[in-house]
């Protein structure tokens, strides 16, 4: 049995693992996809202390190396269910079963889809949820970004340097993103704002060719980058776990309603989802989990 299992190898989970391993706990991190979490897709990070302009990819890689060098064990396995048992928790994947005295959930969030009927058929054929992955395929072309938060504006700025023209489509008339980003977007001649608009239709033979909005626009684009928010990865994971609006209900102490089960990072109910609050959660959740294993 491990002392602590951390589910998710993003900034929150890996920070938690670093704290736990430094307290001489036997720690296992289970990651469904790849290390680093959502931040790896950010082209540059300018608001994390002491690491100005670091790329998200370097941030993820450095954090993973730091954790592994300290002795954190990382396994690539997708956790499907967590059950409280005598003296701890059973953590299951499709083929494996693990156990630990305490568990930290740091599963993060996944991109929200538009919810249009032919959306899936255009994935990889015009629709993308990652500008830094797929922007290069749209060099010199016209694309659209959908969304009004930091991610959407980051993507629009990144794409404006590659593409001929970028439409930024947002359902409201003002942006939720940081003022610095909004100002930067407004200085770009090749970003055109399409406000008070929702995408209602995707057209194209094999590849996306145009999109329609509910305020009467038809925009000819070869790519659409969707950044309309995130969905927490918490549903159905633990029986009896209290959720609020699909997020794991918790305060700043990172405790859940289940003793011994802690939560860190974006999957938790919180005011501000940022790198710095994710790593902070990791430290708090790990400290609480370490204390719990001593009880």
């Amino acid at each position: 049995m491990h002392d602590i299992i951390v589910v998710g190898a993003g900034p929150a989970g890996l920070t938690a693992a670093i704290y736990a391993v430094r307290a001489n706990k036997k720690v296992l991190v289970l990651e469904a996809l790849a290390c680093g979490g959502q931040i790896i897709n950010t082209s540059h990070i300018d608001n994390y202390p002491v690491a100005p302009h670091i790329t998200g990819a370097d941030f993820g890689k450095t954090l993973q190396k730091q954790a592994e060098d300290l002795g954190v064990e990382i396994e690539y396995d997708e956790v499907t269910h967590i059950t409280p048992i005598e003296g701890g928790f059973k953590v299951e994947s499709e083929d494996e079963e693990y156990s630990a005295k305490s568990v930290i959930l740091a599963t993060g969030t996944s991109p929200r889809k538009l919810g249009l009927e032919n959306e899936d058929s255009f994935i990889g054929k015009g629709i993308s949820y990652c500008a830094t992955c797929d922007g290069g395929f749209y060099k010199g072309k016209t694309v659209a970004v959908n969304g009004g938060g930091n991610s959407a504006l980051h993507e629009a700025l990144y794409l404006s340097g590659i593409c001929d023209k970028v439409y930024l489509i947002h359902r409201r008339d003002e942006f939720r993103a940081d003022a610095a980003l909004v100002d930067k977007v407004k200085t770009k001649d090749n970003i055109e704002l399409v406000l008070n608009a929702n995408i209602t239709k995707l057209n194209g033979e094999k590849h996306l060719e145009s999109i329609e909005t509910d305020n009467g626009h038809t925009l000819n684009v070869s790519g659409l980058f969707v950044a309309i928010g995130r969905i927490p990865n918490a549903a159905g994971l633990v029986d009896g776990l209290e959720l609020t609006d699909d997020y794991v209900a918790s305060g700043e102490d990172c405790k859940t309603n289940i003793p011994g089960l802690f939560v860190a990072g974006d999957v938790r109910t919180k005011e501000l989802r940022q790198l710095v609050t994710a790593t902070s959660d990791g430290a708090i959740a790990a400290t609480a989990a370490i204390d719990f294993t001593h009880e």
């Binding site: 790849a34 897709n41 990819a57 992955c133």
Partner: peptide, 12 residues
């Protein structure tokens, strides 16, 4: 080389 998830996938 410029695709972060590709780089994260490589060790796996």
């Amino acid at each position: 080389t410029w695709c972060p998830p590709c780089q994260a996938l490589h060790p796996i």
